[in-house]
């Protein structure tokens, strides 16, 4: 079947989708957006977290067909999403470009940098905070955590530690023991507070 939805502000179309395919699979394997991760595919780890019409969900548990017509934000679009939010609603150019074909999307690769380190890449505050606080080790949980943490800070700019833990309780990390993830979210909240 064919599915259409908007990912990170761009209309996307995928053809020949098997009806049992998850949104996660379509993002990763058909649209060239492998940032959302496939750690458990049973909704237990949160590494595939995306925003579906604004709401954080496990994309592994959304049948691709269910996302028809939806607006999706993945980790790849998080920086731009945060930038537009910081600009205020409608305050900035929403850079509405034409859609990317499946082929184009598959050829997608690192962009906006002069080397593979991603230097010069514009990051969302939560992304920068994860790097600065040492919250990234293997990084496999990172995309889902970033989407979840960013959404929490949007709702709750001054979270207590218990608030952070509750909001991120659906995102497993196996490397860090979560301490530096806590540091990162506190750091992003503090920077957000200073910037406000």
């Amino acid at each position: 079947m064919r599915v259409n939805f908007t990912v990170n502000g761009r209309p996307q179309q995928a053809d020949d989708v098997w009806e049992g395919e998850s949104l996660l699979y379509v993002l990763r394997e058909r649209l060239g957006l492998p940032g959302s991760k496939n750690a458990c595919e049973q909704g237990e780890c949160g590494s595939c977290t995306v925003r579906l019409d604004g709401v954080p969900v496990c994309s592994c548990l959304v049948a691709a067909g269910q996302a028809e017509g939806s607006e999706i934000v993945t980790v790849e679009g998080l920086a731009e999403y945060a930038r537009q939010r910081a600009c205020g609603t409608g305050g900035c150019d929403t850079s509405a470009e034409c859609g990317t074909s499946g082929d184009e999307a598959r050829r997608w690769s690192a962009h906006g940098t002069d080397s593979a380190t991603g230097e010069g890449t514009e990051l969302a505050p939560i992304q920068q905070a994860f790097i600065d606080a040492g919250a990234v080790q293997c990084g496999f949980c990172t995309p889902g955590l970033l989407v979840a943490a960013d959404e929490m800070l949007e709702r709750n700019p001054n979270p207590t530690d218990a608030d952070i833990r509750e909001a991120l309780s659906g995102n497993l990390c196996r490397c860090t023991g979560y301490e530096k993830i806590m540091d990162a979210v506190r750091l992003a909240a503090a920077r957000q507070g200073e910037g406000a």
Binding site: L33, P34, G35, S36, T74, V75, E76, L78, A79, S109, A110, A116, T117, G118, E119, T121, L123, Q127, Q128, F130, I131, D132, G134, V136, G139, T142, P143, L146
Partner: peptide, 12 residues
């Protein structure tokens, strides 16, 4: 900081 940090937080 990790040299792969930016790539890991952008999903790349």
């Amino acid at each position: 900081l990790r040299p792969d940090g930016t790539l890991k937080v952008t999903g790349e």
